[in-house]
Amino acid sequence: MSMRLPKTVLHNRSAKSNYRQSFWAFAWQTIVKKPGRLIGFIIILLFTFMGIFGPYLYPAQLPINPNAIYAPISWQYPLGADFEGTSNLALVITGARYVLFAAAMGAVFTVAFGTILGLCAGYFIGWTDSVIMRITDFILTIPSFPLLVVLSTVWNFGQPVAMGFVLGITGWGGLARAVRSQTMSLRERGFIEAARGLGLSPLYILFREILPNVGSYIAMNLLLSVTGSIYAEVGLFFLGVVPFQVNNWGVMLNLAVFSAGAMSSPQALPYLLSPMLAILILTLGIVLFLDALDEMFNPRLRGV
């Protein structure tokens, strides 16, 4: 009855891949399925490149041109020029790095704090849950933006990582709550009970059994908190509570409104609108791309 199989059958890698597409191949397939997702993906990719390579495209000191102060939109100045005659496009591209990097760090910290605390609270319940949830409530009740303003007065945000960390600390509350409730419903599921019955360690259960099942939700939040972080940090720069150390979108907005008077003089309007446009397009890209994530993380849809 018992049939011994040649070892090669089991160790054969192609036998394995017969039953599962690689994650990346499947992810690509879900993206190209709908044009909206593809557009969103391309936008995100574009901004990523902008963040990484943007500063290398221009000289360290952007050229100024006294003849082109507040120049209107033209081939030479696709987005107009600022009060010194510097191309707005160049300012947007070179200013992307700080903003995007800090936003990405902010999103990573938000998701890391939110996920780990949510998982622990939802799985261990009891007093662990009570303690974590009271802290969460505390974080949620404090208005995060004013807190950021206060923190920025005592903290130097020259490093985007520091900025990201602070954004993460103030923003994880909502995610932790959501992850906790999902974990709580998952822990009642048969496979988690089975894992406990098999004597697998709590860490294994948390990160290997539960985490993949909230993967899509976490990925979605990761992207959404990127936009959230951008709004928050740009807001801080705009208000001027953070010292300007490098050129970025928030600094542009601040200068456009408070120095160039974009609110009253229409010629400075392109200077105000160009960073806004960048934020708008990035948000649009993220929203369009979100649609693909749910499908991407669903193991049932992954083809044979």
């Binding site: 039953y19 048969g190 496979f191 009970e193 089975a194 019955g197 993949p212 193991p299």
Partner: peptide, 23 residues
């Protein structure tokens, strides 16, 4: 934990009892 491992529960719903994310 070691003792309880000797007692295994077979669930009513085998679909619930297997993690959909794993082979």
């Amino acid at each position: 934990r070691n003792l309880l491992r000797k007692i295994q529960l077979i669930h009513q719903d085998p679909y619930q009892a297997l993690n959909p994310a794993y082979s």
